[in-house]
Computed example of a mutant assay.
Amino acid sequence: MEQYCILGRIGEGAHGIVFKAKHVETGEIVALKKVALRRLEDGIPSQALREIKALQEIEDSQYVVQLKAVFPHGAGFVLAFEFMLSDLAEVVRHAQRPLAQAQVKSYLQMLLKGVAFCHANNIVHRDLKPANLLISASGQLKIADFGLARVFSPDGSRLYTHQVATRAVGCILGELLNGSPLFPGENDIEQLCCVLRILGTPSPQVWPEIKDLPDYNKISFKEQAPVPLEEVLPDASPQALDLLGHFLLYPPRQRIAASQALLHQYFFTAPLPAHPSELPIPQRPGGPALKAPPGPPHIHDFHVDRPLEESLLNPELIRPFILEG
């Protein structure tokens, strides 16, 4: 710890306190998660080990928070992460009104790129929620907190596959569109009731694998028909509702994969996803939402109203495909 100067406290997780710190020699700002060992004979907490292993497997993604170092400290150890200014929960909490469509698309696109990268490396996060989606000072979204992560079966032989995780992505999309959780609840049963009220009561006819779940038939719920998503989110676009519906399907194997979702028409209809520099960045302690500092001019960003050749760094690449006259 001697190489870091503590600047303040960010928060507290299941296994330790997170501090903002500066590297004494380089001046780099980082987030330090101090994990204490209650008893040496118990060893390192399994969640901390999972987080380290998962981040080591996928350390080269710009959409996953970077683990910079792990080192012992006292009766425990410290994880050094890149410092992120805020999280998506703060963005939603401090938004004056529902986020603009272009902003929602941008956040969802970055989330899906991170999820797709994790799944390509056979990692399932299992705890995707706005508070675990960190936001940098430049507006970049990155997935964090891999304490519940698992390696999944690429051949789909296990019930828990990567398509289970895309349901969580759907819940996050619903919250971004709605400005509040789509399925609120103080406990598991309340939340389940919210799900059933909107998506309807599942049956073996709709979801044959439901009978294989360990708690199937332990609790019975009255039959309810699903509510059309356009009634739940009347201000959402048809494309957004279509993608949301693909995320929230009951049978996991029928849900859209993250890589497929990135190709959905939702991202290619106006308004297009906003650039990260156009996204709100609230400070962690609260206060008004700020706008990310502008980066260099993006003169080559694609826009539907501009000629395609103006969106290329090398316009000559498109010349052979443009008809003369």
Results as ranks from 00 to 15, higher is better:
residue 13 G to L: 07
residue 19 F to T: 06
residue 20 K to A: 09
residue 21 A to G: 09
residue 22 K to P: 00
residue 25 E to I: 04
residue 27 G to K: 00
residue 29 I to R: 02
residue 34 K to I: 00
residue 34 K to E: 03
residue 44 I to Q: 05
residue 59 E to F: 11
residue 64 V to L: 15
residue 65 V to G: 01
residue 70 V to C: 06
residue 73 H to T: 08
residue 75 A to K: 12
residue 77 F to V: 06
residue 85 L to S: 13
residue 89 A to I: 10
residue 91 V to C: 01
residue 92 V to T: 08
residue 94 H to V: 08
residue 98 P to V: 02
residue 101 Q to S: 12
residue 105 K to D: 09
residue 108 L to S: 03
residue 119 H to F: 08
residue 124 V to Q: 08
residue 127 D to C: 02
residue 134 L to H: 00
residue 137 A to E: 15
residue 139 G to A: 05
residue 153 S to Y: 05
residue 155 D to V: 12
residue 155 D to P: 04
residue 159 L to D: 07
residue 161 T to P: 05
residue 163 Q to F: 09
residue 165 A to L: 13
residue 166 T to I: 03
residue 169 V to Y: 07
residue 169 V to R: 10
residue 175 E to S: 05
residue 175 E to T: 05
residue 180 S to Q: 14
residue 188 D to N: 12
residue 188 D to W: 02
residue 190 E to I: 05
residue 192 L to C: 10
residue 192 L to M: 14
residue 198 I to W: 11
residue 198 I to N: 11
residue 205 Q to K: 14
residue 206 V to N: 10
residue 206 V to L: 14
residue 207 W to D: 12
residue 208 P to A: 04
residue 212 D to R: 15
residue 217 N to C: 07
residue 224 Q to P: 01
residue 225 A to T: 01
residue 226 P to A: 02
residue 231 E to Q: 11
residue 234 P to H: 08
residue 234 P to C: 06
residue 236 A to I: 00
residue 237 S to K: 07
residue 246 H to K: 15
residue 246 H to N: 15
residue 248 L to C: 07
residue 252 P to N: 01
residue 255 R to P: 09
residue 263 L to T: 09
residue 265 Q to M: 08
residue 269 T to K: 14
residue 270 A to P: 02
residue 271 P to S: 02
residue 271 P to C: 02
residue 272 L to V: 03
residue 275 H to A: 12
residue 276 P to I: 10
residue 277 S to V: 11
residue 280 P to E: 03
residue 285 P to A: 04
residue 288 P to S: 11
residue 292 A to Y: 01
residue 298 H to Y: 10
residue 300 H to R: 15
residue 303 H to P: 00
residue 308 L to E: 11
residue 308 L to S: 12
residue 309 E to I: 05
residue 314 N to R: 12
residue 323 L to G: 04
residue 324 E to S: 13
residue 325 G to H: 15
